[in-house]
Amino acid sequence: MSFILLVEQILNGLQFGIMLFLMAAGLTLIFGVMGLINLAHGSLYMIGAFAAATVAGYTGSFVLALAAALAAAAIVGAIVELVVIRRLYDKDHLDQVLATFALILIFSEGTRWLFGSFPLFLDIPDYLSGPVTLPGGIQYPLYRLFLIVVGLLIALGLGALITKTRIGIQIRAGENDREMIAALGIDISRLYTLVFALGAGLAGIAGALVGAIQSVQVGMGEPVLILAFVVIVIGGIGSMKGALIGAILVGLTDTLGGIFLPELLKLFTDPATATSVGSSLASMAIYILMGAILIWRPTGLFGAKS
């Protein structure tokens, strides 16, 4: 296990974590402000990727594709909030899960109806493709570095939005006391639509960014959604800082676990068993992490004390 490989894997874990953060940020925002469990968040991720692939196919521009992903997911998010989600705020969580699960099915089959069953093409633009050499002779794909930088910039932007702006104050107030901010004359339903669209837009842009190196296909959002839920449970539901730390923890655990657990087991057993047991353990690693953190802090790392 060389030093170069280790650094490369840490960068991989970081990049994975930051993309998870974009998904988890929207989820935790929506749960924190509206108290809503939104299973359809993965569908918004898929919508972002499909919008990006379509626009990139017509215009060839990656920047336009990203803008389209953001816009399409945010607009669909706003429409869904107005038409469906709005009726769910005072229902219990089971009703929300049922209704948003129905949305997953509607979005998946609707996307298939529009785009067909075969995966779409979305590629990295030429100016971001290929590897770069980092100090120490590490070869690393430029696009993955780009993902880390863009993700961190979005995280900073979100932090500034929530701590420094008027809308951020309203969001934080909404998390603390919904009735009180309504009583203070703030249009709470407009705020909800805005927060939902913001979360949806983040998911959409994550879908487009990740879609360029993965496959743009129906159902691509659901595996990420599960990880995003793990992230917000670890970070503490409703906490933006928790989502960032949780996402990076999950990203690093998942990436490094997949490499080091089989290697570690090889010290004790034969290589074939080590490989199969190690990779099984590695796929459990993030859930073990979640379990351990919940035992230590039942509300998550940055969750409000109940």
Binding site: V210, Q214, T255, I259
Partner: peptide, 21 residues
């Protein structure tokens, strides 16, 4: 080298790094 990945995995950065090494 011989690796079993997770079914449905979409990010292969870690495996690709091992192939490179």
């Amino acid at each position: 080298g011989e690796i079993y990945t997770t079914l449905g995995q979409t990010d292969y950065a870690a495996e690709i790094a091992q192939i490179r090494a």
